[in-house]
Structures are given as C-alpha cells and as structure tokens.
Amino acid sequence: MKQAYSTIKKSLVEASVLACGASVIALAVNIFHPKSIPFIATDAYETMVPCPVQEGHVTPIAASASELVEKGVFLVDAREESEFHKWHPKGALLLTYDFLDPIPPENIREMAKRIAAKRATKVLVYGDGANPDTGELLGIDISAAGINNVFYIKGGADALKAVWPKQDGRLK
C-alpha cells in the first residue's frame, strides 16, 4: 500500500514537472514562432457561434381558410403598433415581432393566460406578409416557448384583411 502511494506520488510529481517543462518550451517556442501570439490576450476574441436554433413548429395557413371563423381561434398580430391600430381583427392580441430582441417571457405568459381564458385551441399569427414574414417568425418563437397548435397566415395582415368576415361571420 505504502509502495503504491509512493509510486502514485512519484508519477504525479513527474507529471507536474512534465507539464511545467512543456509550458516553458511552449512559451519559448512562441517567441520565435512565425505566427506567434501574445502570451496574454488583450482584445476579446470575436467568436462567431450560431445561436441555438429555435425549435418551434408553425404551420402555414391560407387567409381564405375556413378555420379563421371557427370558435377557439386566438389571433396574434406580429406587426408594428401603428399598423395594428390602423386595422386589426377584433380580439387580436398585439405582440410585435422584433428581429433583434426575443419576446419577453412575461408577454408569453400573458398571452398563454388569455388563450386559456378564451379556451382557444388554435393560435393564428399574422404579420407583415413580407419575406421573411414576421408572422411566421413570431409563430416559431411562440411555439418554441411551449404553446401548441400555432399557425401563421400566409400573406400576413393584408391577406387576412381581404377575406376577413363580415358581421355575419362568413368569409368574403
């Protein structure tokens, strides 16, 4: 037992000496290396690591689809607030999509509460209808946040406005 301990101790000391020796060689070689780098970095490295991909799933749906007038549908508007005030379907929730900032978790929680209160089973998101469509992107984020059954309206608000039901609830 004592011998084993002694052997381990000896090999650990040797390992430490080797590591120190290797480090000294490394630093010495770096002085003469054609691609030498400073021993201590002063400027932060620009590391380009892609952000984790949102794994939300959103299904496209045509604005003319009859699902729009079904009960249990919850509408979310991904556009700017000014666009929302110009026109929006009754009951739609404004949740402006920002290309730079993620949706605040409290907004998601608030939306989830409203969905639950309305007993909605489908979430329909519409945006600017551009490429990329903010409605689709917001839908992906909402789905990634844990809300199920999320759809986005192809063509965005303009397509939706064109077919939005009249007072009788029928599509144009």
Binding site: A19, A26, V29, I37, I40
Partner: peptide
C-alpha cells in the same frame, strides 16, 4: 488565460 492555454496545451 486564453492565449496561455492555447500556447501551452498543445506542447503538453
């Protein structure tokens, strides 16, 4: 420590 690690580790 980044550069020191990058220099010493390969020699170890």
């Amino acid at each position: 420590l980044i550069n020191l690690m990058a220099l010493c580790l390969p020699w170890v």
